[in-house]
Nucleic acid binder design. Structure first.
Lengths: 233, 233
DNA sequence: CGTGAACAATAAGTCAGACTTTTATGTCAC
DNA sequence: GTGACATAAAAGTCTGACTTATTGTTCACG
């Protein structure tokens, strides 16, 4: 969950990265490596390595005689897990959560359909276990336990899809679900129909019914979108 | 399209990155910075910066007293545009194209639905223009021109969706479409029905018919999946 | 014979300083 | 105003010395 803070260079990154993604340095701002090195009290070598990493994320662009220029948002590698973490920790957390939820709503149904085709017996078992865990924690304010199984369920679906790109969205989904529980209106127990949908998805996958798994997951996704009021014009 | 080769450090990266993603150094392989620096005939500082970037992509992990260890595929930042390019240039190009096509098939229909809700007049105009360009180049072996408009069309859809995560997949889609035309069985002119679907999507978006735009785009996506035989058990 | 604590070897990490190269900008002649 | 040219500023590169964490070995002791 938390970032690796190994190395002096990482500490600089964990300070400068969030500052940039938070918009503290508006696009077009120019920084100088020497000045940054002095500010963070590190050598130029360390600072240069940090800048190189930021450059590989397309957050900044380093050019001779100019300096380190902050790039506009459209250039950023918004799929970089570190960038996602930094943005979720920053000011436009809400915007980011909405954006990621839309992505989820697109990907997860298709992933569920693929899972129904490709899931192994072990993966089906895990899926069922997660769904049952959700049911068991769906009443009596056991939100923490519920969340754990919810995250595991969606991770399992993405992994069982057999698609590498989908599987790698597991962390993103986990982040969104956690953020939803923590920040959103999740004082109450989850809606029984929503829980039931998860159980049915597990069933559909186990039976190899791709169309049903996809449709049911689309229902779940719709619920997530509605929670954030993403649909009204 | 092509990578920025500015800087000695980038040249090293463009050589070592593809080698790793191609599996020349199997997961668990250990490299030493000094040795690499000697091999590429650069100073340690330059080599260190390159390694830092590879580390930020989670291709390798650098640890004291151990060296630079190549990480397993599951750890890689597979959404990093540079990693995608490297893998598309390597041996498992086919696998990668299939994987990305599945991602497309999940994302684009939803993006089209959102575009129907949010597209501006200018975006609708561009979309229509692209569709007409496709029609104009759909006969008489004008594959190059057709591809240009095809890429522009899908880019426009993703941009018009108003979702940042979708918009940033424009380059990926462009890569997949280009790869499809270059490598796949695209000697013949594109199927008239496929071309027609694009025109209808543009129409649906213009009319604000989200459901129809989504359904039509799902048809297009289905075609792309069928081309690569992704559906048979 | 196993266990653990001290130790040595190793490779990354850090720093400082000197030098090179690119390139934006200002200057001057025409 | 336009071009060529000089200037300076910042990143880029290299080198060497030093620090630190970590692994693996060795050796003493139970």
């Amino acid at each position: 969950m938390t970032a690796q803070t190994r190395g002096l260079h990482s500490r600089v990154l964990e300070s400068l990265g969030p500052a940039i993604t938070a918009g503290e340095y508006p696009p077009g701002s120019v920084l100088r490596t020497d000045e940054l090195a002095k500010r963070f009290e590190v050598s130029r070598s360390v600072m240069r390595e940090a800048v190189r990493v930021l450059e590989s994320m397309h957050l900044v662009s380093s050019r001779r005689r100019v300096g380190v220029t902050v790039l506009p948002t459209e250039e950023w590698n918004v799929y970089d897990p570190q960038v996602i973490r930094w943005r979720l920790a920053g000011a436009d957390r809400a915007r980011q959560l909405r954006s990621l939820t839309v992505l989820r709503s697109a990907v997860e149904p298709v992933a569920a359909g693929l899972a129904a085709r490709h899931a192994t017996a072990a993966q089906c078992a895990e899926l069922t276990e997660c769904a049952l865990g959700m049911v068991a924690h769906s009443r009596g304010h056991q939100l923490e336990g519920y969340l754990k199984y919810d995250v595991a369920f969606h991770r399992a679906i993405l992994n069982a899809s057999g698609n590498e790109m989908f599987a790698r969205l597991g962390d993103v989904v986990a982040e969104v679900l956690t953020g939803r529980t923590a920040h959103q209106v999740m004082f109450e127990d989850p809606d029984p129909p929503a829980v039931s949908l998860h159980v049915q998805v597990a069933e559909a996958v186990r039976e190899g019914d791709a169309a049903r798994a996809e449709a049911l997951t689309r229902q779940i996704a719709l619920g997530a979108l509605e929670e954030l009021d993403i649909l009204a014009p």
